[in-house]
Each structure stands twice: as C-alpha cells, then as structure tokens.
Simulated scan of single mutants.
Amino acid sequence: MTETRNTAAAGNGTSLEGSFLIAMPGMSDKRFAKSVVYICAHSPNGAMGFVINKPQTMSFPTLLMQLEVIARPEDILMPEHGKNIVVTNGGPVESGRGFVLHSGDYKSVGTVVVDSNISLTPTMDILKALSKGTGPHSAMMVLGYAGWSAGQLESEIAANGWLTCPGDFDIVFSTRAEQKYSSALAKMGIDPAFLAAEAGHA
C-alpha cells in the first residue's frame, strides 16, 4: 500500500500562495484539526492564510451592525445570497481582526490579489460596498488568521502535518463548511476514511 505523503512545496522554494493546506488526522495542534487553510502569502519569511471551514455562529448582518456599517439587517442592499455570507474563524492570530476573502471582481486600495480568481481585502471599504450591493459577487468574512514564521510551515509539511493542493474557488465560496474538508481531499483523489486509516497505522 502506498503511504499517503505530501510531496508539494515544502523546502523547494515554491510559493504556496493560492493553495490549500489540509490538516492530516495526526495534526498535533488541535486548533487546526480537520482544517482547510487557504494560503494568501508565502515566502522565505513565513506564511499567512485563513481557515475556511470553521464557521462562527455570528451572522454577517449582525457583524456589520456591530461594526456600525449598517443600523439594521434590512439595510443591506446586496442580493439575497450576499446576506448569507459566512463569518468564519480564520485562525488564532489577531482573532478580533477582520478580513474578506472574495472573488476577483472587486478591488479597492487595500486589495491584495492572491490568484486570478480570489483576492483579499482587509479594509472597511469592502464591507460598506457589500452592504450597498456594490461589492464582489462571492465573499467570505474571516476573523483572525493563521501565521507561520520563517521555515515553520515547511517544517510542519515535512513532518506530514499538512497536505497541500491548489486552491479551488468553489470549495472556498460555494461548498458548505462541513463539506470543505472532504471536498479538498477529494480534489487530491483521497478518501477521508482511507486517510484516517493510514494515520491509524503510521
């Protein structure tokens, strides 16, 4: 039987920007158990990304009201699907800080293009745009982020803590949170049950 190992960019200098990190069953940090992380920045100095499958109970309209972007939920003018934007726990670092992952059809002064389809905006501009119906077609609000110092992520990957694969727009924005982990594994051709069995016999 072939052992399931990650062979993607660990120490070969290849950037993982725009890729998924998929937590292995043996992930030692319980905060990342069964997590799917979308990597937005990766260089020799470190890496930064967002967990995309750990939703918060807070609704997007409630968050906008707390931030005083709107006064009432009915003040949101975006299409109905926009009102259902998911608010997720993006990671343990600066958990009170908000970011918006979104489709590439929106850009403001603070927008960072991650890949051809997905961008990141950390400013209030995008929240105001979303509330007025002028924001991106697809978006996800994340609170906090996951960060790694120089060489840390590469070490975790080499230790078989993470699998990596190219990011997927639909998994980020369209797939239900509870299905993202299995969907990301399926993108790699891996059955979650097989992965768990492999980990159990490591």
Results as ranks from 00 to 15, higher is better:
146 A>I: 11
138 S>Y: 10
97 R>F: 11
63 L>Y: 13
113 V>K: 13
110 G>I: 00
106 Y>V: 10
152 Q>H: 13
91 G>R: 05
60 F>N: 02
118 I>N: 04
80 E>Q: 04
93 V>E: 14
75 D>M: 06
147 G>H: 03
119 S>K: 01
62 T>F: 00
155 S>E: 15
94 E>K: 11
116 S>Y: 00
98 G>M: 09
78 M>L: 04
46 G>I: 11
57 T>N: 10
37 V>G: 05
36 V>Y: 07
57 T>R: 05
139 A>Y: 08
81 H>T: 10
80 E>P: 00
154 E>I: 02
154 E>D: 15
136 P>W: 14
61 P>D: 07
128 K>W: 10
67 L>Q: 12
49 G>N: 04
63 L>M: 15
68 E>R: 13
43 S>V: 01
39 I>H: 05
135 G>W: 06
113 V>F: 10
105 D>Q: 05
96 G>N: 14
45 N>Q: 15
105 D>G: 04
42 H>I: 08
130 L>D: 04
97 R>L: 12
137 H>V: 15
141 M>I: 12
67 L>H: 01
51 V>H: 02
69 V>N: 01
149 S>V: 10
104 G>D: 11
88 T>D: 01
76 I>F: 02
73 P>Y: 09
143 L>W: 07
121 T>P: 09
83 K>V: 04
114 V>I: 15
47 A>R: 04
76 I>D: 02
66 Q>Y: 06
146 A>S: 15
134 T>K: 11
110 G>D: 14
106 Y>N: 09
58 M>F: 00
147 G>I: 03
100 V>P: 01
132 K>E: 15
116 S>Q: 12
47 A>N: 04
142 V>P: 03
136 P>K: 13
66 Q>A: 15
87 V>C: 14
158 A>L: 15
62 T>D: 13
81 H>V: 09
37 V>F: 01
148 W>K: 02
112 V>F: 06
106 Y>Q: 08
120 L>W: 08
146 A>D: 10
106 Y>I: 12
139 A>R: 04
52 I>C: 06
76 I>Q: 05
99 F>K: 09
149 S>R: 12
71 A>C: 00
103 S>N: 01
45 N>T: 10
84 N>E: 12
97 R>Q: 14
101 L>I: 07
147 G>T: 02
125 D>P: 00
113 V>R: 13
138 S>D: 14
140 M>Y: 04
41 A>V: 09
99 F>R: 11
86 V>M: 14
84 N>R: 13
143 L>N: 03
99 F>C: 06
97 R>T: 13
43 S>P: 05
69 V>F: 00
99 F>S: 07
77 L>D: 08
150 A>Q: 09
43 S>F: 01
155 S>L: 12
37 V>W: 07
117 N>I: 06
70 I>K: 05
127 L>A: 08
138 S>V: 02
105 D>K: 07
121 T>K: 11
89 N>V: 07
72 R>G: 06
99 F>T: 08
69 V>C: 00
64 L>A: 03
139 A>Q: 05
84 N>H: 14
109 V>D: 10
133 G>F: 01
99 F>M: 06
126 I>T: 11
123 T>C: 07
127 L>Q: 01
48 M>L: 15
111 T>I: 01
85 I>R: 03
48 M>K: 12
102 H>V: 09
74 E>H: 01
124 M>Y: 13
61 P>W: 02
97 R>P: 00
83 K>R: 14
150 A>T: 07
99 F>G: 08
50 F>E: 10
111 T>E: 00
128 K>G: 11
61 P>M: 04
36 V>M: 05
